[in-house]
Simulated scan of single mutants.
Amino acid sequence: MFEKHGQLLKFDKGSQIFQEGELANDIYLVNHGKIQISKETENGKELTFRLCGKGCILGETTLFTRDNLHTTSAIALFPSEVFLLSKATLEMLLTEQPALLIEYLKWIQNENIKNRTLIRDLVMNGKKGALFSTLIRLANTYGETIADNVIYIKFNLTNTDIANLCSTSREMINRMLNDLRKQKIISMDKGFITIHDLQYLKDEICCENCPLSICRID
């Protein structure tokens, strides 16, 4: 649908795809690359909600609403390609094709569950729980199993990036990551994290073992 009715756009690393507060007249589908979805608070602190890869849809929250402003910002973390489809076109296609509308509703419901579990982990489990759940989500989304219970996360992240995902300070993340490294729960090499004991992280936050379609960072 995006390929047939949309337009392919290319963005360099660091380019802004859309900004919070801008008019939201289009929906985007990531074809290639990595896109960060984030929000800036009044005091200038950045909170990262998603790290999106191929197949992710962006800007979907404004569909079938009168609120035509983006509530988050999207920035290309690497050279990226996205399909742009106008909001009006997508709304028309969905209303004309009931089967497609049902699939869209299933997808948006899944996204809502993802968001609720993310907020739950950030608010209810404290700073440590926020970090552990973020590492688990990263493993589920960008992880490569290299041994039993050992996951290599194929996504380069700075401690600041992780802090933004956890809605906490870089100093706090530095301390918690160092503690995990000393316990040999994780190791880090040039921004790439290897989790050596995924079950430990799950046990510490009483993980509910949500489906992989829910426990993701994209």
Rank of each mutant, 00 (worst) to 15 (best):
L135I: 08
L131P: 08
N209L: 07
Y142N: 03
C52I: 12
G126R: 07
I35M: 11
E40Y: 09
T95R: 06
N164M: 07
D189I: 02
D121V: 05
E3N: 15
P211C: 11
A76P: 01
N174K: 06
M188W: 12
C215W: 10
K202L: 01
A147D: 15
R216V: 10
T134P: 05
D161T: 01
D67V: 01
R50W: 04
F192E: 09
A88I: 09
I27C: 01
Q36C: 03
K4Y: 10
L212A: 14
W107K: 13
D12R: 09
T194M: 04
E20L: 06
F83P: 11
Y152M: 00
V82F: 09
L9G: 04
T158K: 02
K106S: 13
H196L: 09
I75H: 01
F49Q: 03
H5K: 15
N159R: 10
T61I: 02
A76Y: 00
W107T: 11
E20W: 04
I146R: 00
K190L: 14
C56G: 08
L93Y: 04
E20S: 13
T95F: 12
L180V: 08
Y142G: 02
A163F: 12
E91L: 09
Y142D: 05
S86N: 14
Q183D: 06
Y104A: 05
D161N: 13
A130C: 11
I17M: 03
L101A: 13
T89I: 10
I195C: 00
L47E: 03
D218E: 02
T141N: 03
L77C: 00
E171Q: 12
M172F: 09
S86E: 13
K127A: 15
K13E: 14
V30F: 10
I193D: 08
R50A: 09
M188G: 00
D203N: 15
G33D: 08
